[in-house]
Amino acid sequence: QTQEFDNEEEARKAEKELRKENRRVTVTQENGRWRVTWD
């Protein structure tokens, strides 16, 4: 699953929550947008 964010702060917040659920999370930056991908 993927979700896009406008800034790193929001993306990192989402990453932190997903990691609490023991998910594999990848955060990438593309064209000024932050993308959080998880399984």
Rank of each mutant, 00 (worst) to 15 (best):
R24V: 14
D6E: 11
G32Y: 03
E9G: 08
R24W: 13
E8N: 02
D6H: 06
R19D: 04
G32I: 01
D39M: 11
G32L: 04
T26V: 13
T37Y: 10
E30G: 04
Q29C: 10
A14W: 15
R19S: 09
T2R: 06
R35D: 01
D39V: 12
E30Y: 12
E15N: 02
E9F: 11
K13R: 13
A11W: 02
R33A: 06
L18Q: 03
T28G: 04
N7R: 05
Q29V: 12
W38G: 03
E10V: 03
N7Q: 05
N22V: 04
W38I: 10
A11E: 00
Q29W: 14
T37I: 10
E21Q: 14
K16P: 01
E17Y: 08
T37D: 06
A14E: 03
V27K: 01
Q3H: 11
N22G: 15
K13P: 01
Q3T: 07
T2Y: 15
N7S: 14
F5K: 00
E15V: 10
R23I: 14
K20Q: 12
E15T: 04
E4S: 09
N22F: 15
R12V: 04
L18M: 09
K13F: 11
K16D: 10
R35W: 11
T37W: 14
Q29P: 06
E9T: 09
Q29I: 10
E15I: 08
R19P: 02
N22P: 03
R19H: 06
N31K: 07
D6Q: 07
E15Y: 11
F5V: 01
N31R: 04
R35A: 04
R35I: 15
T37L: 06
K20R: 14
R23E: 07
W34Y: 03
T2V: 13
W38F: 06
F5E: 00
E10T: 05
N31L: 06
Q1D: 09
D6S: 08
T26C: 08
W34R: 01
E8V: 03
A14D: 01
K13S: 09
R19T: 08
N7D: 09
R19V: 10
R24L: 12
E8P: 03
T28R: 06
R33Y: 08
W38P: 03
R24T: 14
